[in-house]
């Protein structure tokens, strides 16, 4: 039986009760939301055969953890997310999501693409775009609308139900994409530089909306970014990859107090120290 369908009623019910606090994850099986990558290698077929983009990659993510991945452009971050989501299969090593070997996209996994144009259907309005993923997850029709509205509300997009993606700003479309990824209550959410194309203020607002949702739903998040400040602000742990072939060079725990605050957190001594440390690491890559 699927996580998605099991968690779905819990989310819908909390909405109907007008209660928005933590979704009950105690019913979830052991290992739900965990990720384990061991000895993973991958090279794109036909491109400089034998040369791997990723080699001997090793890390794991605890259930409910927020992990950010940083690394130079072209080092293989998107490739890594494609491997984690089962869009491509590793040549070597193993990937476990929810304690199960990944062979194709797992049921309870959400993916937020860097480019919302590759995710949102232009002929569906906002609420119907969210419902798309509920239809795909076989959520019964009568519950879809409520769950879709609930997801839109979580990303602070309440009054746009009838707008089409083309009628929304870039930030709104990215929120919509996140709402859709969340609607079917995944246990793992993978995000590929989701805020890279946005202005600073929109970005801050979306970061906070994401942290709020993450805490409410108890998701596991793997978030790729090239922005060190963003990584430190969001994460429990920052993983630094290096290029050619990609592997982990550094892992840094972020123990900054939660809930975080854009102004206060970024001014904290520890934040500044972490940023200095990470910057020095990346600069030598």
């Amino acid at each position: 039986m699927s996580m998605r369908t099991r968690l779905a009623p819990a989310l819908a019910d909390t909405h109907l009760d007008g209660e928005t606090k933590v979704t009950d994850r105690s019913a979830a099986p052991e290992g739900t939301g965990s990720i384990k990558v061991s000895g993973v290698g991958y090279g794109y077929p036909g491109v400089r055969t034998g040369q791997r983009v990723i080699d001997d990659l090793e890390f794991s993510v605890r259930p409910g953890e927020f992990v950010c991945i940083v690394g130079p452009s072209g080092c293989g971050k998107t490739t890594l997310l494609k491997l984690l989501s089962g869009l491509i299969a590793p040549e070597a090593g193993s990937i476990l999501v929810n304690d199960e070997a990944v062979s194709g996209p797992p049921e309870n996994l959400g993916f937020v693409f860097q480019d919302h144009g590759r995710a949102l259907l232009p002929w569906r309005n906002a609420v119907r775009n969210v419902e798309f993923s509920l239809e795909a997850a076989r959520v019964p029709r009568r519950r879809r609308k409520d769950m879709a509205r609930d997801a839109l509300r979580r990303v602070h997009l309440p009054d746009v139900e009838n707008l089409y993606p083309a009628q929304m700003s870039g930030g709104m479309q990215q929120r919509l994409q996140i709402a859709r990824a969340l609607a079917a209550t995944p246990s793992v959410l993978l995000m590929d530089e989701p805020f890279a194309a946005l202005d600073a203020l929109t970005r801050f607002a979306l970061e906070d909306a994401l942290l709020e949702v993450w805490q409410e739903l108890g998701l596991t998040v793997v978030f790729v970014t090239h922005d060190l400040d963003e990584a430190i602000y969001l994460a429990d742990r920052v993983i630094v990859l290096r290029r050619g072939p990609a592997h982990v060079v550094r892992e840094v725990r972020v123990d900054l107090e939660r809930p975080r605050d854009q102004g206060r957190t970024r001014a904290e001594k520890d934040f500044v120290a972490l940023r200095y440390e990470l910057f020095e690491t990346i600069r030598t890559l």
């Binding site: 194709g104 993916f111 590759r118 002929w123 798309f132």
Partner: peptide, 27 residues
């Protein structure tokens, strides 16, 4: 090409992909 990854993540079977993506998109 545009929705290749998305339809895989949503685990759409070919019939659903036809009905919900290709038909309305190509109309």
């Amino acid at each position: 090409h545009r929705f290749e990854d998305m339809t895989k993540i949503e685990r759409l079977n070919p019939v659903r992909k036809l009905v919900t993506v290709y038909v309305p998109g190509a109309l």
